[in-house]
């Protein structure tokens, strides 16, 4: 171990060290590139790929086409260009997926740590978690639409309103698993020697939590986050069936997947595109998570 310190150049900062370790992780790099490409594509794509304007009657003649130069991903049952729709859809799905996941993970981790670390909060917070787990999802969502849709739309406009409502709805209904998992880990971690040591030298809880507990729950949180993105993208499509989501002519990956379902036997590419896009997103988030965990772990970092 003593040799190692001389062999490795002392990095300038901790962030830099983490980045250096992260860079050596092939999967993580792959994930970063794929995700970056997807994000670039959905942000810039609509400017680069403008589908030709045509009348309904003309578009209908071109329905359900396979991939071609004119329509790189083919057309759907109404003759709309799938590439353009995939790009539009990606913007919404990625935004919803990440924002909702972050809300869920943030709420879940906070509640989990508080409940696990402070015995006094454990009871009330976990009973709250039980309650949220028990609430039937669909009525809950329907109540949310009824109470908030028009109000939020009045404040920030219908599209932004729909977005806020969706991420809020998904976030609020999917933090419980993360909370339970984090709490379970924290219960075990807080009895570990180093936490006891920190406590015995009089470290305040906030410091113990941030420096000693949080870094050690990263790994299950990363898994929860990866799963959370996939779940949020799919849940969004369920919400639009309830009328809670975006207007029906607003494509999202989840909805394209569902719409393509009844055409799966005849035109399998209709489900392949959104399916691949969602899988790629989730896969790259997973690899980035893997890389981040390794990079954040000082035991691995020195190796």
């Amino acid at each position: 171990m003593t040799d190692a310190t001389t062999a490795i150049e002392k990095p300038a900062s901790q962030m830099r060290a983490i980045w250096q370790q992260f860079r050596t992780h092939k999967g993580a790099l792959f994930g970063l590139i794929v995700l970056g490409t997807l994000i670039l594509a959905v942000v810039l794509g609509p400017f680069l790929w403008v589908p030709e304007k045509m009348s309904v009657a003309k578009a209908i003649m071109l329905k359900n086409q396979g991939p071609s130069w004119r329509f790189p991903l083919g057309t759907d049952q109404l003759g709309r260009d799938m590439l353009a729709r995939m790009l539009d859809a990606g913007k919404v799905s990625l935004a919803v997926g990440f924002v909702a996941m972050m809300i869920a993970i943030f709420v879940g981790t906070t509640i989990g740590i508080l409940a696990g670390y402070f015995k006094r909060l454990d009871g009330p917070l976990m009973r709250l978690t039980d309650m949220f787990l028990a609430l039937p999802l669909i009525p809950l969502l329907l109540v949310m639409v009824m109470l908030f849709r028009d109000r939020i739309a009045g404040l920030v406009g219908p599209e932004m309103g729909a977005f806020l409502l969706i991420v809020f709805a998904i976030g609020v209904t999917s933090w419980m698993q993360a909370a339970r998992i984090v709490r379970g880990e924290v219960l075990a971690l807080k009895e570990r020697e180093y936490v006891l040591a920190a406590r015995s030298i009089g470290a305040i809880p906030r410091r113990i939590i941030l420096r000693h507990i949080l870094p050690n729950v990263v790994s299950p949180v990363m898994v929860a986050a990866t799963l959370g993105v996939a779940e949020a993208i799919i849940t969004e499509s369920v919400l639009s069936f309830l009328g809670l989501g975006f207007p029906p002519d607003f494509p999202t990956w989840g909805r394209l997947l569902y719409d393509g379902l009844s055409y799966m036997q005849i035109y399998p590419e209709r489900v392949i595109w959104p399916g691949v896009a969602i899988s790629l997103t989730v896969l790259s988030v997973n690899y980035i998570g893997d890389g981040l965990r390794d990079a954040l772990d000082p035991r691995i970092r020195g190796r």
């Binding site: 009348s55 578009a59 639009s240 309830l242 207007p247």
Partner: peptide, 30 residues
């Protein structure tokens, strides 16, 4: 209401009405 055929109809009719010069906002409900 939410139903795949109705959403297709909404999209088509929105196209025609837009061509006519009407601004159309769609909504589907469970």
């Amino acid at each position: 209401s939410t139903n795949p055929v109705r959403q297709d109809f909404q999209a088509l009719i929105k196209d025609w009405w837009t061509e006519l010069g009407v601004d159309v906002e769609l909504r589907n409900i469970d």
